[in-house]
Design a protein around this nucleic acid. Structure first.
Length: 610
DNA sequence: ATAGGGTTAG
């Protein structure tokens, strides 16, 4: 009865489905006419309340319909529309609504609420031009000095600009900064990849006795993770405990992530087990954190998560698909793919990208392309993953074709795409095409080659037997070549049995970094492939004496539905004989098909036990 | 009646 009265009030503006009315937070249980506060509300306030409730539920059309039927729209109604669209990630609509407000709302003046919401929309659109325009309008409306507006301005400049200069300028002009101002600035530096800068601001914040809160701690920990500093991370972890913020899940999640990305996995596990409360991000962080170095453990965490009744989301699937890819475990990846489709998550960009990579690494390039082909939105990662897949399967021409299609579709290539296309050219023997891409990188796209790129080009030349040119390229590099470059070169020397050149290069890198055990290993292999077993043994001896041993590459294989992990020469454990059985049958198989592989070296490695 | 910052994926 009373509810009907309520309905009738609002029906003046719009027809509202009863289900919506029922789900709103209105005082439905108390008699409406006895609630003076409620009854006294003028229709425009009621409508604004309702608009906000619509946005809370993601009902954009309903919100807009009601707004359009309001006879008088005040600044609160307009601002609610703008912030509503922004909170639903419809930044463009928020912006056009603001534009409409300035054009049509002659009697409506934007206030500080309007400006902070619009600036957030500009941030969402990554539009510096809209942001700067809003900045100008904000100054015209004397918004300068409002902390909400200033903080939003700073955030907008930090997000939309390439550098932090403009954001910092706004920060400096804020007379009384609060924790939000500090956190926004730290986040700006950190998201720009300048973790040191972020930590510098965090230190300054502590020195100026601004009180850090959970928000500032989680971004400070994120800064530590981004520079890989476990030392700073641990210090901030201690400060978190001291401030009693261990109960904040986001803070603990970022600490967990920091330990993972600094390769302190046992510390991460300890941290995880000490958490009294966890959410889906906690689990995802743990699973993603183990995916690279210990994918087997990553999948263990996943099954633990499922057994605790937590529903995996897109982030979870992306990580476990990547783990399956790393282990080339199609028998795990395929059913997960099925699960993804059943949950309707097949259209998620990151998940689809992970699936492309997984199928490629499991040898099923046809399935990779099937997924790639039906994707309606492709980002640079999709193209890159497909190109790397083609490249590793020897389909260099297809990869090159994809690169050109990608450019045609309007995506600007980054360094990693060039790694992918160069890798593909290298594996397909497309040397001149590769060199052409290498040159166009700087001249057409203004991307300066880094170590990885030089490594690819050296590999490209080296594989084709053009070791002399590869060496000349290394000599011409504008910075000190690292192990990836030398590694590529040594690989070429090994493949073409160029012991002299290989020795020369190896001695160079040993001069530079005498503690890289991998180099000794590589040299030993060069000697071995050249038949110089004495020298090879000497190198291995030298290596064994070194403290800094080369991390052995871990491998996985699946035997009778069980996953076994092993390193070359593994003798421990009761199941290793299964692994050897599989390896033996593989070797036999390769011999049968007269595979042109370096079997000599493979067998040598297995027997020697390194 | 309307507005802040932080955590997971190549």
């Amino acid at each position: 009865m009373h509810q009907k009265m309520t309905t009738r009030r609002v029906v003046q503006f719009h027809q509202i489905p009863q289900t919506i009315i029922n789900s709103l937070n209105w005082p439905q249980n108390s008699p409406t006419h006895l609630n003076p506060q409620f009854v006294a509300k003028p229709p425009s306030i009621l409508a604004t309340d309702l608009i906000m409730s619509y946005f809370d539920k993601g009902l954009l059309k309903e919100a807009r319909g009601l707004f359009d039927e309001m006879p008088e729209r005040d600044v609160v109604a307009w601002s609610s529309m703008i912030s509503g669209y922004t909170s639903c990630n419809h930044y463009k609509r928020a912006w056009t609504t603001f534009y409409e407000m300035m054009r049509d709302g002659v009697n409506v003046q934007p206030n500080q609420f309007t400006f902070s919401s619009v600036l957030k929309a500009c941030k969402g659109m990554r539009s510096l031009s809209c942001g700067a325009l809003t900045h100008g309008l904000a100054l015209k409306h004397s918004m300068h000095g409002n902390l909400y507006v200033d903080n939003a301005l700073m955030d907008m400049y930090a997000t939309c600009c390439d550098g932090m200069e403009d954001a910092f300028m706004v920060f400096e002009e804020i007379k009384v900064k609060n924790a939000v101002s500090w956190t926004t600035l730290i986040a700006g530096y950190t998201h720009h990849g300048d973790g040191h800068g972020g930590l510098r601001i965090f230190k300054q914040m502590i020195l100026e006795e601004a009180e850090p809160n959970p928000y500032s701690f989680s971004i400070a920990v994120r800064a530590c993770a981004s520079i890989g500093s476990h030392v700073y991370g641990k210090q901030i972890h201690a400060a978190v405990v001291k401030h009693g913020f261990e109960s904040s899940i986001p803070v603990m999640n970022s600490i967990l992530d920091m330990y993972c990305s600094c390769s302190h996995l046992s510390e991460a596990d300890r941290c995880f087990h000490g958490m009294p409360e966890r959410n889906i991000i906690t689990w995802n962080t743990l699973i993603a954190g183990h995916e690279k170095s210990d994918p087997h453990e990553s999948l263990n965490h996943y099954s633990l998560m499922e057994s605790e009744g937590i529903t995996p989301n897109c982030f979870t699937f992306t990580s476990i698909i990547a783990a399956a890819a790393n282990m080339a475990l199609l028998s795990f990846g395929e059913p997960v793919h099925g699960k993804i489709l059943r949950r309707g998550l097949g259209n998620d960009l990151a998940v689809a990208n992970a699936l492309i990579d997984m199928y490629a690494k499991c040898g099923s390039i046809v399935n990779s392309f099937k997924i790639f082909n039906v994707m309606c939105d492709k980002d640079i990662v999709s193209w890159t993953s497909m190109m790397i897949g083609y490249g590793s399967h020897g389909y260099g021409k297809e990869a090159v074709k994809l690169f050109d299609q990608m450019i045609h579709s309007g995506i600007r290539p980054d360094r990693i795409v060039f790694v992918a296309v160069l890798h593909a050219c290298s594996h397909a023997g497309l040397v001149n095409e590769g060199l052409r891409y290498f040159k166009s990188m700087l001249s057409d796209y203004n991307i300066t080659p880094d170590q990885d790129i030089y490594g690819c080009v050296v590999d490209l030349l080296g594989r084709a037997g053009r070791a002399k040119e590869a060496y000349e390229l290394i000599e011409s590099m504008p910075f000190m070549p690292d192990e990836s470059v030398w590694g590529a070169f040594l690989g070429a020397c090994k493949a073409h049995k160029l012991a002299v050149l290989g020795k020369l290069a190896a001695s160079k890198v040993l001069d530079l970094r005498p503690n890289v055990a991998g180099t000794y290993m590589m040299l030993s292999n060069i000697y071995a492939s050249d038949g110089k077993w004495g020298d090879a043994a000497k190198m291995r001896k030298l290596m064994r004496r070194m403290v800094n041993k080369k991390e052995p590459g871990r491998s996985w294989t699946e035997v009778r539905n069980q996953i076994y992990s092993f390193v070359a020469g593994d003798k421990l454990g009761s199941h290793v004989e299964w692994v050897y059985e599989v390896v033996d049958s593989l070797v036999l198989h390769m011999k049968e098909v007269e595979c042109n592989l370096d079997l000599h070296c493979l067998v040598h490695n297995l027997e020697d036990g390194t």
